[in-house]
């Protein structure tokens, strides 16, 4: 007589198949209904949190949260969304002092006040840290003097008076990252480091991934322009 069952069958196999089916059904539901985006600092990843106290020229140091800039409804090509250009810097780093002029110029050109710029607004933010290098002792007073370009402040930024740094005073916020919390979270290898972030919080460009390119080129190449929308219509 033909056997229609398996003598070696074990109830454990039956249970395992049923439970594994349940597990895979759960995973299939997630795969079918979501498109997760990894959090990280490479292009295409969601920007990690950037928190702390920030100084914006008046009102002292208040709470900052980068997430407040994001618009989850933003779609590519929408010029009304506001981008973020983030700089990780140290007020005692000579390269950062030299690049302060570029930051002044970029902020003036792309922050929405320049009538010749027909692209989306770019909000500039600096996260000021204190690198573990001798002579890089910093403070909130030093960050304020650097940002405001306070004349004769008596505070030194990379061996010169902070008020004598190149470029105009900055009008964008500076975050206190003296404890390097944000820098570690963003895995920043050195200063200055730059990130250009889309209005939906996805990183569009980073200086570490694009050596030789500068922030200005990235803004001109990636930030949505009104003219591009008109051309495409």
């Amino acid at each position: 007589m033909k056997h229609i069952y398996d003598d070696e069958a074990d109830i454990r196999t039956k249970a395992a198949i049923r439970v594994m089916s349940l597990f895979f059904v759960g995973l299939i539901i997630i795969a079918a209904t979501t498109s997760p985006v990894a959090t990280g600092t490479k292009a295409g990843e969601r920007a990690p949190a950037l928190e702390g106290k920030f100084y914006n020229g008046s009102g002292g140091w208040t709470e900052f949260n980068l997430e407040s800039y994001w618009d989850s409804n933003w779609v590519e090509g929408d010029a009304s969304g506001q981008w973020v250009a983030l700089e990780f810097m140290d007020t005692d780093c000579p390269y950062c002092v030299r690049s302060a002029e570029d930051m002044s110029q970029n902020a003036a050109d792309f922050d929405g006040s320049n009538p010749q710029w027909d692209g989306a607004i770019v909000n500039f933010i600096a996260s000021a840290t204190q690198l573990d290098i001798q002579g890089h002792d910093s403070s909130r007073a030093e960050i304020e003097a650097f940002r405001d370009k306070t004349p004769d402040s008596g505070i030194s930024c990379a061996s010169s008076d902070c008020g004598s740094r190149p470029g105009a005073a900055h009008a964008f916020p500076y975050i206190d990252d003296l404890d390097q919390d944000n820098m570690k979270k963003w895995k920043v290898g050195g200063t200055p480091s730059y990130y250009l972030i889309q209005p939906d919080g996805i990183i569009a460009w980073s200086s570490s991934e694009n050596p030789g390119e500068d922030l200005r080129d990235a803004i001109l190449a990636l930030v949505t322009r009104e003219s591009a929308q008109t051309d495409g219509a």
């Binding site: 997630i30 209904t33 979501t34 997760p36 969601r46 989850s72």
Partner: peptide, 15 residues
């Protein structure tokens, strides 16, 4: 599974 779903949704930028 629901928490895994929520973490995926939050990563998309949703609430």
């Amino acid at each position: 599974i629901q928490t895994l779903w929520i973490s995926s949704k939050v990563s998309e930028g949703g609430n």
